[in-house]
Amino acid sequence: MAIPTHETSHATPDSVLWQPEVEAHDDLAARTLGFWLYMMSDALLFAGLFAAYGVLDHAYNTAGGPGARQIVHPLDGFWQTLAVMTSVFAFSLATVAMKMRSRPGVILYTSIALVLGLVFIGLEIADFRALIAQGAGPDRSGFLSAFFVLIATHGLHMVFGILWMLVMIVQVARSGFTEHIVARLLNLRLFWQFQASVWVCVYAFVYLRGAF
């Protein structure tokens, strides 16, 4: 009885993606798919927070404190939307510059994305400080706890994205486009674009629905 053998000469990157140490193993695709699956689980974390917010966004849970209508400002939230979207666009352009083999382009657009990310965080912190100064902090009611946790969890993701960008600027400047650095830039692109998708949901269901 003949023993089956791997026909690597006819292999394509897809057919042998999960066979280690074969000629056409696609390491970059495996890395981005792995990170994508991590982001799907991260999205479920946000689903849990949205569920908690949906349950606690009720007059019973305000404990006599302000409800959504009193604390959200859709126009202010739109400036945050513009900041995060423009930041994502800028970092996406950084990956276009990577395709063009332009180190200065990657560093420039990543820096722009980083600054806009800081603008977003600055607006969020100012919003939080104003609410806390009014006595509407996260410990005021169950509703406000859910509000702060949902918004701050997204903000924390933005902070980690900004730190990741700082690291990538240094690595691209020092080492150029090695396979490891390209994989990290591709994963950072997925991560940063994911923040825009989450923010669209936050903006619509917290800021806009809250202002109805």
């Binding site: 981005t32 990956t95 395709k99 083999r101 486009f177 396979e179």
Partner: peptide
């Protein structure tokens, strides 16, 4: 790595 489809 810059010829990878996800870069292109």
């Amino acid at each position: 790595p810059l010829t990878h489809p996800e870069v292109r």
